[in-house]
Amino acid sequence: MGPKKRVSIRINGVNYLHEVEPRLLLIHYLRDVVGLTGSHIGCETSVCGACTVMLDGAAVKSCTVLAVQADGAEVLTIEGLAQGEDLHPLQEGFWECHGLQCGYCTPGMILSAYQLLLRRPDPTEEEIRRAVDGNLCRCTGYQHIVDAVQYAARKMKK
């Protein structure tokens, strides 16, 4: 076992301080150490995107980031999107437009869409499809996901 390292990570606005093994992946840190199980583990090989979170404003696959690499950083997970009882427009869009069936890919899908709307508040359909290129969904056929992101973009413009 390698020597443990101290990490200080701000997650959804809350500061956490832990001693972790350098080999601990960010997704395992979030789920097993911090207890935030909203981010899912799918393929664990940086393909499926289920573990996508925001790391200092950039969507990343947290199965391919070490917790020690997030030291000093700010992380946003699906748990940090809603404001109290009010869903984020993206969460509302996925609800209203049936952007999910089984829901396994949804947290990652929403954070990739969140990244897109930060960079392109008014995306075209092609831009939306390109933005979720790194997120696999085996239920919806993606069309309702595109609708959900368009819903959110419209709502956030108002």
């Binding site: 696959k61 980031v65 290129d133 790194g134």
Partner: peptide
């Protein structure tokens, strides 16, 4: 290259 998340890192 890859996808958005890969290009971010």
């Amino acid at each position: 290259i890859g996808d958005v998340q890969v290009r971010n890192r």
